[in-house]
Simulated scan of single mutants.
Amino acid sequence: MHYSAAMHTQPPALLLAAGRGERMRPLTDHTPKPLLQVQGRPLLEWHLQALADAGVARAVINTAWLGERISQQFSSHFGPKGAPGKREQLSISYSHEDQDFGRALETAGGIARALPLLGPVFWLAAGDVFAPDFPFDAAAAQRFARGDALAHLWLVENPAHHPLGDFGLSEGGLALNPAPGSSAPRYTYSTIALLRAGLFAAPWCDIPAGNPGGVAAPLAPLLRRAMDAGRVTAELYRGRWTDVGTPERLAALNATAPPQG
């Protein structure tokens, strides 16, 4: 099923914010990682602001560890109130995995759980990644919606902490699942993507619709199956990007000047 709204409309977004942030302890003992301050604002707020600026009308945030703190921080809307010539506020809803199941459901499990709140096509971004230049471009969403790929990934050059990367990239823009031992170049998945709900159905995924049983499952195996079938596209992202996975990386970000604009 293709996203068929008018070309003036953005698909909704899902922001992943359910992780415990073990490597960030003790900072995350009392603060969920997406609410840690990065250059003067909560990390998750950077994505919310970019989505609002890009004209995305609805965002879903999945939560688990200290999830109530996230919903208290952002309530049900984000951004300035609508005014003449201004965009409407970004509407926010939540998929509280901790309240429903007492634990996080990993990436694919969490996405499957949130699908009823989304649509046939949606943006995906991890709430613990800092990517202040990423535009959430409506034209990219429209191109994806018109095609038949199940996912479109943004890849980045491998950071020092992940030197082997995740996926390959063909000259024609297909994401590749490298064979074991392959020496072909790999890149790191930025955790930003456009996804089709069909990726979370057979034959790619065996979690029932809406994940009523709270199955926990990672996303990478689904992506690799779809890559092997030629159903995942990708491109390199050259903007600023940091996986804020350790206190040292957070401190390095906060030691730099805030982005302009």
Rank of each mutant, 00 (worst) to 15 (best):
P163D: 14
P258S: 03
L124M: 12
L44D: 02
L194P: 07
S93F: 03
L15R: 09
L15D: 02
A50T: 03
A141L: 01
E88W: 14
R58L: 11
A160S: 11
R143Y: 13
A257W: 02
A175F: 05
A257R: 02
G19S: 11
F78P: 02
M24T: 08
M24V: 12
V60T: 12
A139S: 15
D133V: 10
G168T: 00
A201P: 00
A83V: 08
E88P: 07
G119H: 13
N158L: 05
S93K: 12
I92K: 09
M227E: 10
L43E: 00
A54T: 05
E106L: 14
L164W: 09
R224S: 14
V129H: 06
E235I: 12
P178M: 01
A197K: 10
E171H: 06
D166E: 12
T28F: 02
H2P: 15
A108S: 08
S4K: 13
N254E: 06
V232E: 14
P178N: 06
A83I: 03
S95T: 13
D243E: 08
Q99A: 13
T256S: 13
G168N: 00
W46Q: 01
L66M: 09
D243H: 15
A175D: 11
P34Q: 04
Y3D: 12
R231C: 02
A257H: 04
A234E: 09
L115K: 02
G82R: 15
F122N: 02
V215M: 11
R143D: 15
E45W: 11
V215T: 14
A126F: 06
F134M: 14
L15V: 09
G173N: 04
F101A: 05
T9D: 09
E171C: 05
A57S: 12
D228P: 10
Q72A: 14
